[in-house]
Design a binder for these strands. Sequence first.
DNA 1: AAATGACATCTATTTTCTCGATAGTTTGGG
DNA 2: CCCAAACTATCGAGAAAATAGATGTCATTT
Lengths: 284, 284
Amino acid sequence: MSFTQLRAFHAVVEHKGFTAAATALNVSQSTITMQVGALEKRYNVELFHRQGRVVVPTQSGETLHRITARLMQAHRDSLEFLEASEALETGTLRIAAVGPIHATEMISMFKTRYPGVELKVKFGNSQETLEALLGREADIAITADVSTHPAVVMERYSDHQVVVFVHKAHRFFKRDSILIAELRGEPVVLREEGSTTRRAFETALARHKVKIDRAMEIGSREGVWRAVRLGLGIGVVADFEFVPAPELRAITISDVDIRTNYFVAYLKNRENAPLIRAFLKLYL
Amino acid sequence: MSFTQLRAFHAVVEHKGFTAAATALNVSQSTITMQVGALEKRYNVELFHRQGRVVVPTQSGETLHRITARLMQAHRDSLEFLEASEALETGTLRIAAVGPIHATEMISMFKTRYPGVELKVKFGNSQETLEALLGREADIAITADVSTHPAVVMERYSDHQVVVFVHKAHRFFKRDSILIAELRGEPVVLREEGSTTRRAFETALARHKVKIDRAMEIGSREGVWRAVRLGLGIGVVADFEFVPAPELRAITISDVDIRTNYFVAYLKNRENAPLIRAFLKLYL
DNA sequence: AAATGACATCTATTTTCTCGATAGTTTGGG
DNA sequence: CCCAAACTATCGAGAAAATAGATGTCATTT
């Protein structure tokens, strides 16, 4: 009893005839006759009443048909699922990330592009993130640390210098660069916690034991930009994000290299996993 | 996506490994690897995490597995049903019969031999019985009339002469044969209504306008035999059923041929239908 | 009675499935 | 730290299954 035979039998019942079944399955009528005939001969069972040109399933045929209906449904379901997977209309991508900012940005972008894919995000520190990846609990890791593990591939996702920028009324306005110590006590307009740029900036300040005046905390780039233009403090921004304006000036910090450094990581032997490829393609 | 591929995939999940799946399906490991690999490549989907010697289904793999579980169950059910059919452990045999006596005897015998087969019996006259057969509402007809329909095969099931038998005290005891008219007014011990033998006997009496004395009506052959031995009347029996005894004698009716004539009929083009063959084999 | 429409049968061919050998990987032990 | 054991991956050839097309048979229709 092969699947092909059962499929042929099922089609004959569904289409009320051998010829019709053959048409539906895109095979020849003789093929259908053979398949069904083989079933009947092999199991010594009469599946159809053949009375002239009318074909009616026997009692046994009807019973078997109830079973093959389930069989064919499951077969169609399998195909449907696989085709949905192929089109990335289904599936699950598990992301382990160190900070919410990058991840949520990426997630919304990915979700917009592939609405059918379920996304699971787990936040943790760098070590936990890497462990999740190695333990196959995550497909993608978004982390700041570089891993030396041979099975892990890391692709740089974000790499830029942090600069400060000031309004022209500020005493730094005519400078090209400053020293980090000069920021001591300065009022600074910052992005919210979790911002990659802010984290890099504060890490550098802490390392050099520089205390600043956290004048404001604003949730958007434009907000920071407006606050600085109003002279409320020094702005902090990634270099490529700085929008030049006549009354504003970006200034580098010459004695410390403050930069963000984020990576997307995945397991080497899964580089061809469709969802991982799709994810990387969207950002790199 | 072929059934074979889905089966291979399913086995790998179920047996937690390619090699184990191969063993379970009685194929080589390379076959399994190819089947699953073909699925993954064709639909660009990752079905298993391959981490060294451990094989774990991915999220997609688990989803597909839920579907293939149904698929395989239906496949097993199909096989089970067909094998039951082969062994005549299932199925339905529809019988159309003219009288209850023969049919019930046959049914109980058939049911004993094939307990799994459902039997449906419909009683009617000869014409209805034949029509049920031709209309495919019955698989087997048990009838007394001979049909000339070319599609119908009739096999003689019962054909025997009806004889009377008497106790040695009876005036017929020394005779070899009698005329039917001699039975007029005689006390006769009969089987119950529906008995084939009784019907043939009474039909003959009616044709020759002979009225007898229905002395007793007894539901078994032994009962009739005992009653006759006690001198309660003349017995009526099929020739081959007569059990010789010193004080009893079977006597033929010389001027009328009283015989039962029953047939089992089936459609010519269904002569190979397993249930029909099984039925015929049991009686002919 | 011929035409028609549908199932049955046969053989050759194409496609699919499968195997066996071999290579590459990971894991556990000495 | 390296080796052996236990897997999975890959390849090319051979076996098995599925299929097509021509033709036969049969019942119904006109």
